[in-house]
C-alpha cells in the first residue's frame, strides 16, 4: 500500500522535474511483466528458503527405512499424495523418495537454501572484489589499469566452468570451495562493468570540480564515481545470481559442489540421471527447481535492465 502512495507522490513530483531514483525504478519495473514474474518467483524462493524447516514434511537427511506407513521397496518410490488418490495408509511423500529412500520434497525445499546461499554469497564476493578492481583500474589508469585489466582478460579467456572446476580440484570439493570458485570466475565481469562506468564519468566536469576543490581520490571514487556504476552493476548482479546458481548445480553435478548428504539440486540430478526412464520424478523435481530459480533471476535481471535504461520507458 505504501508503495502505491509513494508512487503517486513521485508522479506528482515528476511534474516538478525532481524524481526519486528508486521509485522511478520501481514504477518502471511494475510495468514490465516479465520483471514482475521474476520478482514473484524470487520472493517465493526466498520465503521457501527461510521457512524450509516449517514447510518440509520430513527430515531431508533421514532414510525412511523402518518407519510406519512405509511399504518396501522404498528407494525411488513414486510420489504418494493422499489428495490424488494414494492409499491413505501409505505415508505421504509429495515428490516421492530418492535413491536413499529420503523424502524428495523435503530435499528439494532444503536445496533452495544451498542454491540461494551459493548464488548470493558468490555474487556478493565477486561484486566486492570486481568493483574494487574496476574502480582502481579505471580511476588510476596507466600501468595499474593495464595490469588489472589484462589479468581480467586472462581470466575471461578461460571457459568459466572449466576455471571453476580447476579451482575446486585444487582446493578440494565442497560447498565453500564451489562458492569461492564461482565467485572468482565472475570477478572479471564486474570489474569490466565498473571500469567502463568509471572511464565515462571520471572526465566529467563535476569530477574535475571536486578534484580542483582538493578532494581526496578515495572520496571522489567512492562518493562521486561509484554511484554512477551502480545501475549496470545491479543488472549484472541479478543476472549473475542466476548464472551462479546454474554453475553451482553444474559443479555439484560433477561431484565437486556440495557434498552428500547436503541436499543440492545439481547433485540430486547427477545421482538420479541413470533412472530418468524408470523413476522420472527423481530428475523432474530438482530439474524444475533449478529452471525456475534461474528463470526468476534472469527475468528480474532483464526487467531491471529495461527499467534502468534511460533510452526506454522515460516519459
Amino acid at each position: 500500500m505504501d508503495n502505491v502512495i509513494s508512487l503517486e507522490l513521485s508522479n506528482q513530483g515528476k511534474n516538478q522535474r525532481t524524481y526519486n531514483f528508486w521509485l522511478e525504478l520501481l514504477g518502471n519495473l511494475r510495468r514490465n511483466r516479465s520483471a514482475v514474474t521474476g520478482f514473484i518467483i524470487i520472493a517465493l524462493l526466498i520465503m521457501i528458503a527461510i521457512f524450509a524447516s516449517v514447510i518440509t514434511t520430513h527430515d531431508p537427511l533421514l532414510p525412511m527405512f523402518g518407519l510406519p506407513g512405509e511399504t518396501p521397496p522404498l528407494p525411488r518410490k513414486a510420489p504418494c499424495i493422499h489428495l490424488l488418490g494414494c492409499n491413505a495408509e501409505e505415508a505421504q511423500h509429495l515428490m516421492g523418495l530418492d535413491l536413499n529412500a529420503r523424502d524428495l520434497f523435503s530435499r528439494v525445499i532444503f536445496g533452495s537454501r544451498t542454491s540461494l546461499v551459493v548464488g548470493v554469497f558468490s555474487v556478493s564476493f565477486a561484486i566486492t572484489i570486481g568493483t574494487l578492481l574496476g574502480l582502481i583500474g579505471g580511476y588510476a589508469g596507466g600501468w595499474i589499469d593495464n595490469i588489472i585489466m589484462r589479468l581480467m582478460d586472462v581470466m575471461l579467456a578461460f571457459p568459466s566452468l572449466l576455471l571453476a572446476i580447476t579451482i575446486v580440484t585444487i582446493r578440494g570439493p565442497g560447498l565453500e570451495n564451489a562458492l569461492l570458485a564461482i565467485a572468482i570466475v565472475s570477478i572479471p565481469q564486474y570489474a569490466r562493468v565498473t571500469r567502463s562506468s568509471v572511464l565515462k564519468v571520471k572526465e566529467e566536469e563535476f569530477v574535475t570540480a571536486e578534484r580542483s576543490l582538493g578532494a581526496e581520490s578515495w572520496r571522489i571514487v567512492f562518493i562521486h564515481i561509484l554511484p554512477h556504476a551502480l545501475t549496470p552493476l545491479i543488472v549484472q548482479a541479478t543476472l549473475g545470481i542466476g548464472g551462479a546458481v546454474l554453475e553451482a548445480a553444474g559443479l555439484a553435478f560433477l561431484g565437486l559442489g556440495a557434498q552428500p548428504p547436503t541436499p543440492e539440486w545439481g547433485f540430486m540430478l547427477s545421482e538420479a540421471r541413470a533412472y530418468i526412464f524408470t523413476s522420472p520424478h527423481l530428475v523432474f523435481f530438482p530439474g524444475i527447481a533449478i529452471t525456475l530459480t534461474v528463470l526468476g533471476f534472469n527475468l528480474l535481471g532483464d526487467g531491471l535492465r529495461d527499467a534502468l535504461d534511460p533510452r526506454l520507458n522515460r516519459d
Partner: peptide, 22 residues
C-alpha cells in the same frame, strides 16, 4: 554413491560423522 550415503546415514545414528570422498 547410494550405498556410501546409506552408510553415512546409518553411522550418523551413532553420532559418527562420515564425509564422503570419491
Amino acid at each position: 554413491g547410494v550405498v556410501a550415503q546409506d552408510i553415512q546415514a546409518q553411522l550418523a545414528q551413532l553420532g559418527v560423522v562420515v564425509n564422503i570422498e570419491v
